[in-house]
């Protein structure tokens, strides 16, 4: 309980800190909207002259893109990969290691604070307006909302674990441009953030199904637009749960190795 209070204090401080960098929130929101329009127009062009594609209407597709951009806006407020790299490079990680807390947990809670601020002040208002202005699909029942939210949280935690694990490779590599590229490529393709998995060729869809990334955006997005229901929904969320456990276990293992490996740069 006392531990939780400690970590929540980091959320609170991160929230305050975000408030000091409001401009940052606005610029991030701006680029988020640019991408939203870009993907909207691309899908509009692809759908022109067609009705349903693979049984999915343009309206559903557009809703998928909007909710996907919204979730990405939320995710963008926390970047554990960059943070850990920066801390290892500058040696500030030493300061974190000298504290009586667990770094991955504290960093997660700091991100909660950043996200809360960013969500409340930028993402939520914008997307409420967007959903009100355009004729988009939103969950039709309370249970669908709850399942979406739950799935989105699971997705966030999966991404956090995977991203921080990639970031921790800095301890071994020092230069992680390549690792970064692999991570960002995998997440943009396999998570379904811009192209839903149902448009993938069969072999790629199968591959994506067995990777953790689809649990990050594809599952919550699909629940939101009603493409994922019944038995398939339960299975998908169960899969998310399994991936969260697996990626968290891997994160803890890599962290314990990294902590022993640490070579503080300079100082």
């Amino acid at each position: 309980m006392r531990q939780l209070r400690l970590y929540l204090e980091f959320s609170r401080k991160a929230f305050q800190r975000s408030a000091a960098y409001r401009f940052d929130a606005w610029t991030r929101l701006f680029s988020n909207v640019i991408f939203l329009f870009m993907w909207g127009f691309i899908w509009f062009a692809l759908y022109s002259g067609k009705g349903d594609v693979e049984g999915v209407s343009f309206e559903s597709m557009l809703s998928y893109i909007v909710v996907s951009q919204m979730l990405q806006g939320v995710h963008g407020a926390g970047t554990p990969l960059w943070e850990i790299q920066e801390r290892v490079r500058t040696g500030d990680i030493a300061m974190e290691m000298m504290r009586p807390y667990d770094y991955p947990t504290r960093s997660l809670f700091s991100d909660f604070g950043n996200i809360a601020f960013h969500f409340l002040t930028a993402v939520l208002p914008l997307y409420v307006v967007l959903f009100a202005l355009f004729d988009l699909q939103i969950p039709t029942s309370m249970s669908q909302w709850i399942l979406f939210l739950l799935s989105a949280v699971l997705g966030y935690l999966i991404r956090y674990s995977v991203e921080l694990t990639f970031g921790l490779l800095t301890f071994w590599l020092m230069e992680t441009g390549g690792v970064e590229d692999i991570f960002y490529f995998s997440i943009s393709l396999f998570s379904g953030s811009v192209i839903p998995l149902w448009f993938f060729p069969d072999w790629l869809e199968t591959l994506a199904y067995f990777l953790p990334f689809q649990g990050i955006f594809f599952v919550p997005n699909s629940i939101f637009v009603g493409q994922l229901t019944g038995q398939a929904l339960i299975e998908a969320m169960l899969m998310q749960g399994i991936w969260l456990v697996v990626s968290y276990v891997i994160l803890r293992w890599v962290w314990s190795r990294a902590a022993l490996k640490i070579v503080v740069q300079g100082g």
Partner: peptide, 25 residues
């Protein structure tokens, strides 16, 4: 460490202290 601060750069000094109060209970 004389060359490196252990305080949180973006926070007012007093808030760094308050954070440490929680950290060390």
């Amino acid at each position: 460490f004389g060359q490196r601060s252990q305080l949180w750069w973006d926070l007012p000094t007093i808030e760094s202290f308050e954070l440490l109060k929680q950290v060390y209970a």
